[in-house]
Design a binder for these strands. Structure first.
Lengths: 226, 226
DNA sequence: TTCGTGAGTAGAACAGTGTTCGTGACAACT
DNA sequence: AGTTGTCACGAACACTGTTCTACTCACGAA
């Protein structure tokens, strides 16, 4: 009975394949296709929508099929931030304008993180030994050293800067959901008796268009070095 | 039949309550008890172990009971970082040593985050309008202003500093799991052909005992201000 | 040509997760 | 004494990541 049923199913699939001019063999699943569809999913619906089932469904298969190419979801996250880091191209070091070059690299990374909302959370959880992110570290280190910064200060500043970029983009990603004016309204409601400084400077606290705060923060980490 | 069965159960619970000298009425669930058990859970097993079911089980009840006091898990997270922020006490502003005071507040916050491993992730996702974290912002703002920093620079620097503390503690929390020597070993394996700067300064990249990197980063954000 | 063999493909299931529904019991006010 | 409303909570739903286990199928050897 079982064989008969399976032959019936096979028969049905053969009939169904008559409609497609392409051969019935489906395109094989590769790591590249998985990463590509995952990135598209995150770009469209955010990092929370990235589930193994969603990726598998987009590839017209079940979730189990992914585990032949990817060990974990953690590894998939890792691959994503790797693919994303590959889009960042560090400039050739120019000693005269090394601060601007650092700012440029950080801006590239920030834009990559913001393009895929919420993915920066994965970057914070990712192991620091990812080969593609190390390429960015290498590029930054070259810029710093060309700028005359001591190796130790360079290393520590790079660490701080990369950490800040991740944190900034994590926050910035979910600020998109919440209305920003809402925050300002709540700050205005604070009683001056308990929050004198905040009440007095609520406009300054909420100021900063675009990425002004971002560039301010990065620059402030660079002035001491060198 | 149903009534008979329920009366039987009631009879059984009455008999069971004979053993306890405390009255059968269980201690009521309150927000405070929920937060306290949640904090204990995070302190002992980390943020990933914090689930509604685990908290409910520790309170000897089902998960549904929590939702009468807490809207969401997100709100519970918020309450946790609020309770944790209440442990940070900003010093009375002293214009002469305002930088050290900022470092002190950041250190307090860092230690709180590290005491409850992984909870900093919740701090990054939390809305910025939390009343207890605003208390810290207020304290910092007072210190900055007393130190003669302009309101705008103060506001932006506070933002950057708090973001960095969260990111630092997030990373530091999971570095506890992975062996640190492992990272160093991987860095040593990098080919100097592709990673000349990293290979040349691998020791500097891995240096920094205790919270040296932390204090370096915070200080570097403060030198430009003022 | 026939027969394994081994890699790639998935369906089903498991142990979790956050959250909601509806029932039930208790305390307090009328 | 009766009613009301708040709190407690078992059961269930829709998810999540992950694994087990069959099953297909191209490819190389006898």
């Amino acid at each position: 009975m079982n064989r008969k049923a399976s032959s019936r199913e096979e028969w049905a699939t053969q009939i169904a394949s008559l409609d497609q001019q392409t051969p019935a063999r489906k395109e094989p699943i590769t790591v590249g296709r998985i990463v590509a569809t995952a990135l598209a999913l995150v770009e469209a619906e955010g990092f929370d929508a990235l589930t193994m089932r969603r990726v598998a469904a987009a590839l017209q298969t079940g979730p189990a099929s992914l585990y032949a190419h990817v060990r974990n979801k953690a590894e998939l996250d890792d691959l994503l931030i790797g693919a994303l880091s590959r889009n960042v191209v560090p400039p050739k070091p120019d000693a005269a304008r090394w601060r601007e070059q650092v700012l440029d690299v950080c801006g590239q990374l920030r834009d990559q993180f913001l393009r895929y909302p919420g993915i920066a959370r994965a970057a914070l959880s990712a192991p620091p030994a990812n080969l593609d992110t190390l390429r960015i570290t290498e590029g930054l280190l070259a810029i710093f050293l060309a700028g005359g910064v001591s190796p130790r200060a360079a290393a520590w500043t790079i660490d701080a800067v990369l950490l800040y970029v991740s944190a900034y983009t994590v926050e910035s990603s979910l600020r998109g959901e919440v209305d920003r004016g809402e925050v300002l309204e709540r700050l205005r409601m604070l009683p001056a008796s308990h929050f004198p400084c905040i009440s007095a400077h609520v406009d300054e606290l909420n100021s900063g268009e675009g990425h002004e705060r971002f560039e301010f923060a990065i620059r402030s980490m660079l002035v001491s070095a060198g």
